[in-house]
Design a protein around this nucleic acid. Structure first.
Length: 712
DNA sequence: TTCTCGATG
């Protein structure tokens, strides 16, 4: 009974509604709601302190009545007495759709909205749609949602679903969140960057506003930690409805996880058991390399899925395979949380994932393969138990799981560049960032480095306070250096052009390089190439796309991701609105591309490299060798400028600079005087014309500002 | 001469 209910409820999350379940057709929405575990089952309350009394009464009344009362009553009773509650809601418990409605039904929406945050946009949209149907109103009236680029709420809205990033932005405008009577932070156990910042902020807001209620959802394993962080608050457990999954560990460690995964999938297939297979791999490359050719005569549809895959190919994993054909989906961790495929009976888990880790000391990201955490492993195996009992084959030993894996993944806030977080907190008036209450504080090094970077960009002054430039930078949903570039471009009269470049840089992967057609796509890409700059190459691509009426056919013909370009246009339009609002003028410099390069230099002078040898560069400040990425316009051309700036430094197989632009040495000294000085070199034999030659040297900083504002 | 895990504003 339980299993069937879960199966049916899974239906409502599907984007396409044509296959509405019989359950959904027969039962009214109210009846469906009452089937949910959150409504009918007993809450297991691990209570603390004074909460015990109120819990006692609510359970007592349950028993007195002689039947199981819907435990929403005991939940609401506890909630009335506590400003913050942790809810452990397992998959299929109904917490996401029901908690908001309970609060609404209990009168909380009479003095403000009930807000519910989600880490992902699709979730915010689809849940809002479902809840508006349950309440019986049009989406956008009583129940609405807000995500970037789309605000589907009105003055009537009482229940608002949104991404956590939106709530964070709202707190900039209204730091006490006065519009809300209650906030539910859903999927908080995923610990997104925004969630972690909101944790610290909301903890303060609740202490200031005694009428604001907060619910934080968590996974079982970190509920105690969450409760402690918010001040020993009560924890509710709501059971879920999923099918049992057999977990099978590898007896010995696997050396080659790709090969092991393929073998395991074949073995499952030959076992004669029915059901689709989902394989978790760390990255796109492993997925493409996975040689499933042994499957072809055996009636298996091998389907790759990763975020960079064009959407028409992505859609294939949701299509029903022909009769008698088994689907074998090979996925990155996109299939862990972001998308759900029904009918998976077998999961094969490589035990690895790719993560970006930031090294503040050298300002470099590294994209590395790491063992997954136990939480990841459980999430992956759970994917086999959504529509029936399943099996999960883990390509690692039980001892590796127990002894080598972390219980949970290191939260993003501890492994990312914090410049944006620091800027946001500064603008929210947080004086001493090192004392800000993070659940898991980021490394101090990282915080100081981010403050330093903001000082370089002129967003913070010598005392660590926000400057007018910094205040303007916060307005943009961009990384600080990109905001800075946009602001500077107004004075340099190339804002319309920089606006496009900034928008292009805000979107991943413009160029598409399909397997088997690498050379062909490289040749097409070269046609867009501006020899001295990848930034200008991007501008060129956008202008040509615009001249071709933003055509998607044109994109396909030129190996350009249509989806990415559409997003560029959306971002551009949003940024333009903010510029208009901030009274920043929009002007193009036409074909004077030197101005554009100088403008880029004004915001990125801190990421400069100097030519050393043929096609080899070293970082001007650190002396560290770094390489042009083979996708760069400057790569392999005869043209090797003395100085370049880079947008990003990523360590993969080597230290690669991604997106570079040639700059004049004098610009570096002019725009980044805290780093560079111009030194007049003596005439040397090799140099002709006797002209001054400039040597840009990294200058030792006279005063390191972090010393000044570490404590303040 | 390489490849970008996943999300967000």
């Amino acid at each position: 009974w339980c299993y069937r209910a879960e199966q049916k409820f899974a239906e409502h999350m599907k984007e396409k509604n044509e296959a509405r379940s019989e359950f959904a057709k027969k039962k009214s929405l109210l009846e469906q709601r009452q089937y949910l575990p959150i409504f009918v089952s007993i809450f297991h309350l691990l209570c603390r302190r004074s909460i015990q009394t109120s819990l006692f009464f609510s359970f007592k009344s349950t028993i007195l009545d002689g039947r199981l009362l819907p435990d929403r009553h005991s939940f609401l009773a506890i909630y009335r007495d506590n400003n913050i509650v942790i809810v452990v809601g397992e998959t299929g418990s109904g917490k996401t759709t029901q908690l908001t409605q309970y609060l609404h039904e209990d009168g909380y929406t009479s003095y403000g909205m009930v807000g519910c945050t989600q880490p992902r946009r699709v979730a915010a949209m689809s849940v809002a749609k479902r809840v508006s149907e349950e309440i019986g109103s049009n989406l956008g009236d009583e129940v609405g949602y807000a995500i970037r680029f789309e605000d589907c709420t009105s003055e009537k809205t009482l229940i608002k679903y949104m991404t956590d990033g939106i709530l964070l932005r709202e707190s900039l405008r209204e730091s006490d969140l006065d519009h809300y009577s209650a906030v539910i932070m859903d999927e908080a156990h995923e610990r997104s960057l925004n969630t972690d910042v909101l944790f610290g902020l909301l903890r303060e807001v609740v202490s200031r506003r005694t009428d604001l209620k907060l619910i934080v959802t968590s996974a079982t394993m970190d509920s105690d930690k969450f409760a402690a962080f918010f001040g020993n608050v009560p924890i509710f457990h709501i059971p879920g409805r999923t099918f049992p999954v057999d977990i099978l560990f590898s007896k010995t460690p696997q050396e080659d996880y790709v090969e092991a995964a393929v073998k395991q999938a074949l073995q499952i297939h030959l076992s004669g058991l029915m059901g689709d297979i989902l394989i978790f791999m760390p990255g796109q490359e492993d997925i493409e390399v996975s040689d499933m050719s042994g499957f072809i005569p055996l009636l298996v549809a091998v389907l790759p899925i990763y975020s960079q895959l064009p959407s028409d190919l992505q859609a294939k994993i949701f299509q029903k395979a022909p009769d008698g054909v088994r689907k074998c989906i090979v996925a990155t961790n996109i299939a862990e949380t972001s998308l759900t495929v029904d009918g998976i009976m077998f999961v094969v888990d490589s035990g690895y994932c790719k993560l970006k880790v930031f090294n503040p000391r050298i300002g470099m990201d590294a994209l590395q393969v790491f063992p997954i955490s136990q939480a990841n492993a459980n999430q992956r195996s759970g994917r086999a138990g959504r529509t029936g009992p399943g099996q999960c084959y883990r390509l690692y030993t039980q001892s590796a799981y127990k002894n080598e894996m972390l219980t949970t993944t290191i939260p993003e806030i501890q492994r990312t560049n914090l410049a944006n977080v620091v800027l946001l907190l500064k603008s929210l008036g947080v004086q001493d960032l090192l004392l800000f209450h993070f659940m898991d504080p980021p490394p101090e090094d990282n915080m100081l480095n981010s403050m330093y970077q903001l000082w370089i960009l002129g967003a913070l002054d010598n005392t660590g306070a926000l400057t007018p430039t910094g205040r303007l930078m916060v307005e943009f949903p961009l990384d600080p250096a990109l905001s800075k570039m946009l602001i500077v471009s107004c004075d340099m009269c190339c804002s319309a052009d920089i606006l496009i470049i900034v928008s292009m840089l805000s979107v991943p992967a413009i160029f598409y390089r399909p397997k088997g057609r690498e050379e062909e796509s490289d040749q097409v890409r070269e046609k867009f190439s501006v020899p001295e700059s990848d930034h200008l190459t991007y501008l060129n691509v956008y202008m040509q796309w615009k001249n071709n009426n933003y055509s998607s056919i044109w994109c396909n013909d030129h190996f350009i991701h249509t989806k990415a370009m559409r997003k560029v246009r959306e971002v551009r339009s949003q940024l333009k609105d903010i510029m208009v609002q901030q009274k920043m003028n929009l002007v193009s410099c036409g074909s004077d591309w030197d101005i554009i390069r100088k403008c880029i230099c004004a915001a990125y002078f801190h990421q400069a490299a100097k030519l050393k040898g043929i096609g080899e560069y070293v970082n001007v400040r650190t002396g560290m060798p770094c390489h042009l990425h083979p996708t760069s316009s400057l790569f392999g051309m005869g043209y090797t400028p003395d100085y370049i700036i880079y947008h990003e430094l990523v360590m993969t197989t080597k230290e690669y600079m991604q997106c570079v632009t040639a700059v004049d040495g004098e610009w570096l000294a002019e725009l980044g005087p805290m780093f560079y000085s111009v030194k007049q070199a003596g005439k040397t034999e090799e140099r002709q014309e006797g002209s001054f030659q400039f040597q840009i040297r990294a200058k030792k900083l006279i005063s390191h500002p972090s010393a000044g504002f570490a404590g303040k």
